[in-house]
Amino acid sequence: MNPTYARRRRKDIIVRWLCVGAAGFGVTWLALILLTLLFNGVKGLNLEVFTQNTPPPGANEGGLLNAITGSIIMTAIGVGVGAPLGLFAGTYLAEYGRNDRLTSVIRFINDILLSAPSIIIGLFVYGIVVVPMRSFSALAGSLALAVIVIPVVLRTTEDMLSLVPNPLREAASALGLPRSLVIRRIAYRAARSGLITGMLLATARVAGETAPLLFTALSDQFFSLNLTKTMANLPVTINNFVQSPYVYWKQLAWTGALIITFAVLALNIGARILGAERTAK
């Protein structure tokens, strides 16, 4: 074979294998992390984890009930506050303000907030909620999560509503439906699975967030439903327990990590399946 061709082919084959190697590298990390979690977490997985509160230092029994409850409450409030805000804001961008200058500014700012460091959002909420209230609280934690939810939902809402074909809207308008009903009854319905996907993704994103909770909700050892006080939550509990010298706390931390990771991945996969159904149709 001509040496030039041979060289080009050799180069091509090397690069191909490097790319295959890169893909293998990425998938290996995921597998390694999940296997480590399973290996360390499954040992401690039993009913107690879900029925008992976090133990005091040194104790040898106890679960994560208060932390799991706290996480669910704060995530629910965070999504409950953030999702409608994001949904309406996305609606404005996609339906009313398509050719507005304001829209492009908001879209740009939103994209930046989407990737902004979550610890900064913690600082922000500390400044506007914790300082005036003079105490750490679950409410502050929930609001920090809501601020993270808004950009995610806004982005997917805008994208999904822009996919709804215009003739649908025009047909509804021609029947005399006012604009707000065209949006709520027609556009929302046509984009429903996409909108739900966005909310699931947002939930997955905040369910595992730790940084913004560190100095807003803090965390404690007690079962509490009081929104104006500190509230135990899974990510911060894991963070505190895994760095402790107590074996049982460490075990609980790994079990908690396993629960939270699989919950988040399940939400992610659920969102993806829902999204795929839409594009397949």
Partner: peptide, 22 residues
């Protein structure tokens, strides 16, 4: 493979920390 890579982005960052440490 695409999904596996995207799931890497879904893993909470504290899990990466634990894994990196241990």
């Amino acid at each position: 493979i695409g999904i596996a890579i995207e799931l890497l982005a879904g893993i909470p960052s504290i899990i990466y920390g634990m894994w990196g440490f241990f």
